[in-house]
């Protein structure tokens, strides 16, 4: 069982996907705050997110992920919450 807070795990996903320090990622982080978070980067990030949490997202969920908070909301609906 991973004891890390969900937001920290998402921050680690961002670090892997976008090569940014995990420390700068907060629930308020949005695409404009992360240079590599464009449509191609988004697909890569979602793929790492799926591996990290062992689940698959629907297209609507992927499109909903317009901020870290949105990602946390989607994860919570799938039963992933602190």
């Amino acid at each position: 069982m991973n004891e890390q807070p969900i937001v920290s795990r998402v921050a680690n996903v961002f670090h892997e996907a976008f090569a940014v320090p995990a420390e700068i990622i907060t629930s308020q982080t949005a695409p404009d705050d992360v240079p590599k978070w464009d449509s191609l980067g988004h697909m890569n990030m979602v793929s790492i997110l799926e591996k990290e949490f062992g689940l698959q997202f629907e297209i609507d969920e992927i499109m909903e992920m317009a901020s870290v908070q949105n990602i946390l909301d989607v994860l919570a609906r799938k039963g992933i919450k602190d």
Binding site: P31, S39, L40, H42, M43, I62, M63, E64, A66
Partner: peptide
């Protein structure tokens, strides 16, 4: 541009 992408910007 990617051939097909799904992101916060929608399906492109």
């Amino acid at each position: 541009g990617a051939v097909m992408s799904v992101s916060f910007a929608g399906v492109k």
